[in-house]
């Protein structure tokens, strides 16, 4: 068994709201300096930089899970995490068919850069990524899980794009495996503020749009750095475990 310090919500320069420093080598370097050993790349409705971050992390000891932060029809943000890049790319094809044909306005929303493993510019994604897909949250749960992925509603405590604000409650019909709260609310306090979260595994995500926003406060005891193992840990099954481990967010990077 090994202990992983994880940050499951990291944006790259493909997200219009992310800082230009969010390029593969710096994302990897910053994680390692903070003793984070597993991250998930989760750009808004997009995934074109995942392979580049994985390449940048190759041999470094950092595991990079393929992911996306999808905006559902109800304007709820959900993390969709996958085991393999192929699974994510198959999901991306579904998402692409459900995005509006609108163009991004970089002056208002920000630039959307596709980059290589060094962070060098490849192209711009010209689509409007910071908008809702026409996929409902029910369909997202069903399809992502059928494709082997894990759905984690993101920053459920936030008024903008949070599940609780936009949908009001957690449907018992969702095969919910975990929920994410924002940096503004400790998982231990979340249940007190939102009693309906009780009984679900709660992780805290940095929603990392700039390097200083890494938190890495999720600790997983698992046999290997994989999504299947994280799933077991969230369920506290087969000797795997998950715990909120504060303190990591106070670690200053050693530069």
């Amino acid at each position: 068994m090994q202990t992983l310090r994880a940050e499951l919500h990291v944006h790259t320069v493909l997200s219009p709201c992310a800082e230009v420093e969010m390029i593969p080598p710096l994302i990897v370097q910053e994680a390692l300096e903070r003793a984070i050993t597993l991250i998930a790349i989760t750009d808004h409705n997009a995934s074109a930089n995942v392979a580049a971050v994985q390449a940048a992390a190759a041999g470094s000891g950092l595991t990079v899970l393929p992911g996306m932060e999808l905006q559902t029809q109800e304007e709820v943000h959900v993390l969709c995490l996958f085991e393999t890049l192929e699974q994510l790319l198959a999901w991306q094809e579904v998402v692409d068919r459900h995005l509006p044909a609108l163009e991004n306005n970089p002056d208002l929303f920000g630039e959307q850069f596709v980059v290589d493993a060094s962070g060098d510019f490849i192209c711009r994604d010209t689509r409007l990524l910071l908008t809702s897909s026409t996929l409902s949250i029910d369909v997202v749960f069903e399809q992502v899980q059928a494709m082997g992925g894990l759905v984690i509603p993101a920053h459920v405590d936030r008024k903008a794009f949070g599940l609780l604000t936009n949908l009001g409650f957690i449907s018992p019909d969702w095969p919910l495996e975990a929920l994410e709260v924002s940096r503004h609310l400790k998982p231990t306090e979340a249940v007190l503020k939102f009693p309906q979260l009780a009984g679900y595994p709660i992780i805290q995500g940095g929603d990392v749009h700039r390097l200083e926003e890494y938190m890495g406060v999720s600790e997983f005891n698992v046999a290997a750095p994989s999504l299947a193992e994280l799933r077991l840990a969230l369920r506290q099954q087969s000797g795997r475990s998950y715990q909120y481990q504060p303190g990591a967010d106070n670690l200053q990077p050693t530069k």
Partner: peptide, 29 residues
């Protein structure tokens, strides 16, 4: 719902909402 506003509101119009977060500014602009 910002996505509805983006598709439905018209230029020079008034938008009535109880959303107060940063993203509403980008939509209005």
């Amino acid at each position: 719902l910002l996505s509805c506003v983006m598709a439905g509101a018209k230029s020079d119009g008034l938008w009535v909402t109880l959303q107060a977060h940063l993203n509403i500014i980008a939509i209005a602009a």
